[in-house]
Design a protein around this nucleic acid. Structure first.
Length: 853
DNA sequence: CACCTAGTACTTTTT
DNA sequence: GTACTAGGTG
């Protein structure tokens, strides 16, 4: 319950904590000042106390930018006497908002609850839920995630009999549509600008997609922002209300806002201009999803009176810390083993620590960062082997797991007749005889026709089909549909009378999900546990009226971010992508996979701007470390795409800051400055005398680990602990009450993801680390995809013909750059980043490759 | 017509 | 791992 108006006339907690300006005489004033300003440096103080008008805070990593916002809000409330509900703070994740609120709560108490905070997406969703009808958006709209979006597109592809691969791959089409939307283009404008065949194709899909989402009462993530902006632009009365409501605006991570978000903020600030944005252009890493660095560069132009708190020195901060350790590994397993060994040495995990060893570090002070989610695999295995607990952020996200989405689809269906995608999701789970053919008939029946120009709501079609009113549906499917329609109507009758967890109980049992999972063995148990987890999380909404609880739960679950799962207090090592690590810090950080083609990623090799973004990403990663930083790379990368050179980013770090961990390694040949070089790698790989044989990884305890059984047992022990540990009682439960009778968007309940989940592949032992399949002599060549027949080229036996960085021309893939190449027994496998067709590995003797002068 | 199994191809980053 | 497909079976 959030700030109920007290019938006795006592001041509300918010009112109590509000100092009156008039009361702030000498001593009181300085006490407030002291508490808020004392921990801040000069620049921060200036930012905090500059409260009127536009303010741009540009500062480097670790300089306390978020802190500036928190203290500024405290200052506004306690020193300037601004009502907390007049203040808005936009953060990058829900987690960041929750943390900011926690810190604010410590500083100023209960008033912290009334400050509006959230992500752009969640704030827009809340505003649209309340006021969207002013621009024609139905109240009960559903938020579609990437998976839902793809299902919509796949429906089109099926209608058109097009493949879901190649240039009509749903993710590709959706990416293009999203980019156009973020550029402010609608389908018509896309069509006008389309030049290539593919662009016209995408434009047509964009039109259909927009129409279909409208028909389904659904919005995607981009729409949330676009409609949120449209609300402010096209509903003046509503816009004025919000402008009057929020007199002081704050935006964190401003460098990652896109054009739409910027315009949204500008609309809100139009009246009073009290806009404080905080960012660091060196940490701009989201241009691929529309973030526009011009938002920073243009700020002063758009707000001529803006105060700017200047950027501070950055790199010198590194000098105070320890030197950076670099390790050149042979392959990802070796790399992971080295990281784990260092963690064991530094933490108390390893027994028999030397007496003179430094104070053991705690596991929650350690993070392992990587460029792509797939890279977590090798590291997880190594951690599991050493029984080091970890939390994996991202990867297969909880709310995207199949069974969780199934359960959520049921909830969506209960509150929508039109949400076809969710209906189709639940129709045949568990299998009940409703297949492709039946779905096709249902879609046809729902489609617009002469008698129903807007189409028929899918929910109605299902009920009709259950009554035998849709021709062609076979008996079994018909009975199932009748059963589903019946369950839906019964559950709907119950919504208003039961709590959300109880409603989910009904869904689980009456949908057959529960019985289905019970018959599915170990995997079913795992999935069932996830459904119980979901049920537990839904309990956070019990304070709300049941119908509101359902709406809010469905909405919030659609908007959780990866980072929201991060638990900084858990005694676990954190595994996280470089992107998701932004805004977080640890005393000890490992950045793994610093291999050309991985980081920087191969897709960035062709493009100067993308390469710069990779470099900034590296900067973000490096600056996550408060005290100790270790960098590592593996010469052999996974996926059979050849060897990789040490990342160029390693070479860009001043030599004197680095300590090479394997300098004295007898296997290192000194060919590269980072120890293990190409020649030794190649010899070890192809020559059969690999140090890898037998013992696995040098220096690691050998023979103690049996991949299959051990992993299984440990996985069980872990997942149990991880689950119970992940459920936190919400700090507060206030949701939506206005402190006065003003309409109000305030605190959202915090949704927590399970942490430390052990991925299924670790459980089976199939993917577990161990010696790779050994073949005599050369390793198995990766599959050669393209088969361009061409005469063999002259080459010197035993020597690579293609050099990294060579520009090459391929008859069908066009121009590309050699990422790396590897000698096999009779050939050379060249990995090339092509401008248009991505990265391919080709056999030099077969592919007709021309080296460009 | 639906369902199951096995085989194949795919993996940048995410609200 | 996931998603999709093809082909055989009930």
């Amino acid at each position: 319950m959030n700030l109920p108006l007290d019938p006795t006339g006592e001041p509300s907690p918010a009112e109590r904590s509000l100092p009156r300006r008039a009361q702030l005489t000498g001593a009181a004033l300085s006490a407030v000042q002291e508490r808020i300003l004392a921990p801040l440096n000069e620049a921060q103080r200036r930012a905090v106390t500059t409260t009127a008008g536009p303010l741009l805070v540009l500062a480097g990593a670790g300089s306390g930018k978020t802190r500036v916002i928190t203290h500024r809000i405290a200052w506004l409330i306690q020193h300037e006497g601004v009502a907390p509900w007049k203040i808005l703070a936009v953060t990058f994740t829900n987690k960041a908002a929750a943390e900011m609120r926690d810190r604010l709560h410590e500083m100023i108490g209960e008033a912290a609850r009334d400050v509006a905070m959230g992500t752009f997406h969640s704030l827009c969703a809340r505003m649209l839920r309340r006021d969207g009808e002013a621009i024609g958006l139905p109240k009960g709209f559903t938020i579609y995630d990437a998976d839902d979006q793809a299902r919509v597109i796949k429906g089109f592809l099926k209608e058109d009999d097009l493949p879901a691969t190649g240039e009509t791959k749903p993710s590709l089409i959706l990416g293009a549509i999203s980019r156009a939307k973020n550029d402010g283009l609608n389908a018509d404008q896309m069509e006008d600008r389309a030049i290539t065949h593919h662009e016209r194709l995408v434009a047509r899909f964009a039109r259909r997609y927009a129409a279909e989402l409208k028909r389904l009462d659904a919005v995607d993530f981009d729409d949330l922002l676009l409609e949120g902006l449209r609300l402010l632009q096209e509903a003046p009365a509503v816009a004025d209300r919000y402008r009057a409501k929020w007199e002081y605006l704050h935006v964190d991570e401003y460098q990652d806002t896109n054009r739409i978000q910027y315009n949204w903020v500008r609309e809100l600030a139009a009246k009073h201009g009290n806009l404080c944005v905080v960012g660091d252009d060196d940490q701009s890493i989201y241009s691929w999803r529309g973030a526009d660095i011009r938002n920073i560069l243009d700020f002063e132009r758009d707000w001529p009176t803006a105060e700017v708190v200047p950027k501070k020195k950055l790199w010198t901060e590194l000098e105070g810390g320890d030197q950076i350790t670099v390790y050149g590994a042979f392959d990802p397993e070796d790399e992971a083993a080295w990281i784990v060994r260092r963690i064991e040495e530094a933490s108390a995990v390893v027994t028999g620590r030397r007496a003179d060893a430094p104070e053991p570090v705690s596991l929650n002070g350690i993070a392992i960062l990587y460029r792509t989610n797939a890279q977590s695999r090798a590291i997880e295995e190594a951690l599991l082997r050493s029984s080091i607990p970890y939390q994996l952020i991202g990867g297969t996200r909880f709310y995207q797991r199949r069974e969780v989405k199934d359960a959520l689809a049921w909830l969506r269906v209960l509150r929508s007749d039109t949400d076809r995608i969710s209906y189709e999701r639940i129709l045949n789970v568990p299998p009940r005889g409703i297949g492709d053919k039946t779905i096709e008939l249902l879609r046809a029946a729902a489609a617009p026709s002469v008698s129903a120009p807007d189409g028929t709501p899918y929910g109605h079609v299902i009920a009709a089909a259950g009554r035998g009113e849709v021709a062609g549906v076979n008996t079994r499917a018909r009975n199932s549909l009748a059963g589903i329609a019946d369950v839906i109507s019964r559950l709907r009758d119950r919504i208003a009378a039961v709590t959300l967890p109880e409603l989910l109980d009904g869904v689980y049992s009456e949908s057959g999900l529960r019985a289905h999972l019970a018959s599915e063995g170990v995997e079913g148990e795992e999935r069932w546990a996830n459904l119980l987890e979901l049920r537990g999380i839904s309990g956070r909404f019990m304070e709300l009226a049941p119908l509101d609880a359902l709406d809010r739960f469905v909405e919030e679950t659609a908007l959780v971010a990866d980072q929201d799962a991060f638990d900084g207090d858990a005694e676990r090592v954190t595994l996280i992508t470089l992107h998701a690590a932004k805004g977080l810090e640890w005393p000890t950080v490992f950045i793994s996979g610093l291999t050309e083609g991985l980081f920087p990623h191969s897709r960035a090799l062709m493009d100067q701007e993308q390469m710069e973004e990779e470099r900034r990403l590296c900067y973000v990663g490096i600056t996550r470390a408060k005290r100790r930083l270790s960098l590592s790379y593996a010469l052999r990368r996974g996926w059979g795409d050849g060897d990789g050179a040490p990342s160029r980013f390693l070479a860009e770090i001043p030599e004197e800051l680095l300590v090479v961990a394997n300098d004295d390694d007898p296997r290192a040949d000194g060919e590269t400055r980072f120890g293990r070089g190409f020649r030794s790698a190649r010899a070890g790989f192809a020559g059969g005398e690999s140090w890898r044989e037998g013992s696995g990884t040098p220096g690691a305890p050998s023979g103690a680990f049996r991949p299959g059984r051990d992993l299984e047992a440990r996985r069980r022990a872990y997942s149990a602990g991880a689950r119970s540990g992940s459920l936190r009682v919400p700090d507060t439960d206030g949701i939506d009450e206005a402190p006065d009778d003003d309409e109000y968007i305030g605190e959202a309940p915090e949704l927590i993801q399970p942490v430390g989940r052990i991925p299924p592949w670790a459980a089976t032992g199939r993917g577990a680390a161990g010696a790779p399949p050994q073949t005599a002599g050369a390793p198995l060549p990766p599959p050669l995809r393209p088969r361009t027949v061409a005469p063999a080229r002259a080459r010197i036996p035993g020597e690579r013909y293609f050099r990294d960085g060579d520009r090459v021309l391929h008859p069908s893939f066009g121009e590309g750059i050699v990422v790396t190449s590897k000698l096999t027994r009779h050939d050379e496998e060249v990995t090339i980043a092509f401008a248009g067709s991505g990265v391919k590995t080709l056999a030099a003797s077969i592919a007709n490759l021309e080296v460009q002068g």
